[in-house]
Design a binder for these strands. Structure first.
Length: 295
DNA sequence: CATTCGTGGTC
DNA sequence: TGACCAAGAAT
């Protein structure tokens, strides 16, 4: 027997070395950036490209440099400052997380993964990202980029499936044993997926572990499973909600129902979406029946 | 476990 | 032009 080319921690070491030379200089990765700043960046980055997050993150950190600063701000200010990043419930939850940090943790973002996961808007990924990037803990961090890297490098598949509990074990098997390197590896694996092992056409020529990649060794087989269907947007409630909120972000005093009619023709869908925005706490109704961002 | 939740850039 | 996609969480 010659060798069973099982991909292991040596691949992780190689990816860390690659990261040291290839990493982007992102503002939330700079030295001195605290866990609060990391938390804000991570929530903004949920399903949102880096280029769009950068300017908004800078503005937020200047305005609200601590959880305590954000916790006292009315939701309307937070929703407006969120701008058009999308999924504005994230803005609301981030503010609620700030309140929780003040109430439960004395204004200091907790370093414990369980305590982080208990914060509004913070799930498995974000909790570990804050513990790892914000506090330097050697936590496994699995996002969509990492799942794609593991799918190809380890499992020889073109695409990652849905997130599973086993993802954490998969990435742990690649992680360098040294704690400092393990911490670096968590960012490095994400960066590899973001820059090289991308969803579209991967740049295998630039990949530091291309000679060990199970997918390449198998001849880059195409994705076999059912094609994951892309989300529609035009005509959906998401678009309508976006339109309605857009009107309210621009208006600096409550608007009447007539002003919202311009946002979307279909009265049934418009009404349903307005109700859902009210239910989400993204919109508030005044005593005289007009609508506004929550004060 | 599948859906829902924004927005805009890219190929 | 339009499908595809971008550091997920909540339900």
């Amino acid at each position: 027997m010659t060798s069973t080319a099982t991909v292991g921690p040596d691949a992780g070491e190689t990816i860390v070395d690659w990261y040291e030379t290839a990493a982007r200089d992102l503002p939330w990765r700079r030295p001195g950036v605290d866990a609060w700043a990391v938390l804000v960046s991570e929530v903004m980055l949920q399903q949102t490209p880096v280029a769009r997050v950068e300017p908004v993150w800078r503005e937020w950190m200047a305005r609200w440099p601590t959880p305590g600063a954000l916790a006292t701000v009315p939701p309307a200010d937070v929703i407006r400052a969120w701008g058009k990043l999308g999924y504005p419930r994230r803005a609301l939850r981030l503010r609620e997380a700030a309140v929780a940090v003040v109430e439960r943790h004395g204004g200091v973002v907790p370093a414990d993964v369980s305590a982080l996961e208990a914060l509004p808007g913070v799930g498995t990924y974000t909790a570990r990202a804050v513990a790892c990037f914000g506090y330097g803990q050697p936590q496994p961090v699995v996002d969509t980029n990492v799942r794609r890297v593991v799918a190809r490098l380890v499992h020889g598949r073109a695409e990652a499936g849905n997130a599973r509990a086993a993802d954490l074990a998969d990435i742990a098997a690649l992680t360098p044993p040294d704690a400092r390197r393990a911490t670096r590896f968590s960012v490095a694996a994400m960066e590899l997926g973001a820059l090289v092992c991308v969803a579209g056409t991967p740049r295998c020529g630039a990949c530091p572990v291309r000679d060990r990649c199970a997918w390449r060794l198998a001849g880059c087989p195409p994705h076999d499973g059912p094609p994951r269907r892309v989300q529609k947007f035009a005509g959906t409630d998401r678009q309508v909600r976006g339109r309605l909120l857009d009107v309210l972000r621009e208006a600096h005093e409550p608007v009447d129902a007539a002003a919202l009619e311009a946002a979307w023709e279909d009265a049934v869908q418009r009404g349903r979406c307005l109700d859902s925005l009210l239910a989400d706490g993204l919109v508030e109704q005044t005593d005289d029946g007009r609508f506004t961002l929550p004060t």
